[in-house]
Design a binder for these strands. Structure first.
Length: 281
DNA sequence: CAACGGACCTGCCTGC
DNA sequence: TGCAGGCAGGTCCGTT
């Protein structure tokens, strides 16, 4: 499920329930996620979740040392969570029955529990004691698409001299953080750019337009994701904005909503790519 | 360096 | 109905 809007929706849904809370119990039911869950995660009880934030599609829980009442040595650092392809977080009562693929539980002093669910186990829970932005997974990540650091000029700098298809460039986290397959397709359609076009051959004006459409489509999806936040205690974090509003993604052989041309599916960078031959060049 | 293919997993859908 | 094959919203890592 998770593209950046779902991760942001998850962040907003979970944050009010866990920020500032002390962790009272941790259960790792399955340690072999994308990488093994490190022992520092098991040692979290007694510590406090000071802040919850997002960088690209990573969720970051900064952990403050435990109080004198806690057991074990006080520790300070950051839990790095990624939802992979199929991961989700939800807040639930600790005595609620667990489902298959519920891999990791954090019980909080509020009496509620944060549960990580991930059938494909491409997600991860990692620990770093250093500044999270220095972690190898985060160190080389490009600007947040919704920050002021991301614009057509940033895209142009990354595209200069590159022959890669522009679609592949958008999925490269070093260029821009957290743009996934769906929104890369959608933004290219909105900007009227063919996904296979060599990145370095796009004009500054077209890259400006593309950057703006990336911001628009992600911002819009986050707004829509927000509509399910109310029910976050019950929902598993999958927002319902999907499908209906997509212009090209997963719409092969269906008519373009703008020009009626049949949507085409191709593969680039080993990923399915959908576009309208009528309005993308 | 850039670019590419393979890897990690389960579930769901299609077609034979 | 069963089963094989293809495909899926991510992204890291090793090899050219």
């Amino acid at each position: 499920m998770p593209e950046l809007p779902e991760v942001e929706t998850t962040l907003r849904g979970v944050r009010p329930h866990i920020e500032g809370r002390r962790i009272t119990d941790v259960v790792v039911r399955r340690r072999n996620l994308r990488w093994p869950v490190p022992p520092e995660i098991d040692a979290l009880p007694g510590s406090r979740i000071a802040t919850v934030s997002r960088r690209a599609k990573y969720l970051l829980l900064t952990i403050a040392p435990g109080t004198s009442a806690s057991t074990g040595p006080p520790r300070q650092g950051t839990v790095i969570i990624h939802l992979g392809m199929s991961g989700s977080l939800r807040i639930i009562a600790p005595d609620a029955p667990h489902r298959p693929h519920d891999h990791l539980f954090l019980t909080l002093d509020s009496g509620l529990q944060l549960r990580f669910h991930d059938p494909r186990r491409f997600g991860c829970w990692l620990w770093t004691a250093a500044a999270p932005e220095e972690h190898p997974l985060l160190r080389n990540i490009g600007p947040e698409p919704l920050s002021i650091d991301f614009d057509g000029a940033a895209l142009a700098a990354a595209a200069r001299g590159r022959k890669r298809p522009i679609k592949d460039l958008l999925l490269d986290g070093r260029v821009v953080a957290g743009v996934g397959n769906i929104y890369a397709c959608e933004a290219l359609h909105l900007a009227g750019i063919h996904p296979k076009r060599a990145a370095g051959r796009l004009s500054a004006a077209r890259l400006d337009r593309l950057a703006e459409q990336i911001r628009q489509v992600l911002g819009h999806a986050i707004e829509r994701g927000g509509t399910t936040l109310r029910d976050f205690l019950r929902e598993d974090g999958a927002p319902g904005y999907f499908k209906q509003e997509l212009h090209v993604y997963d719409r092969e052989h269906q008519p373009c909503r703008r020009c009626e041309t049949s949507i085409r599916r191709i593969v680039t960078g080993q990923r399915s790519t959908f576009y309208c031959p009528g309005c993308q060049h």
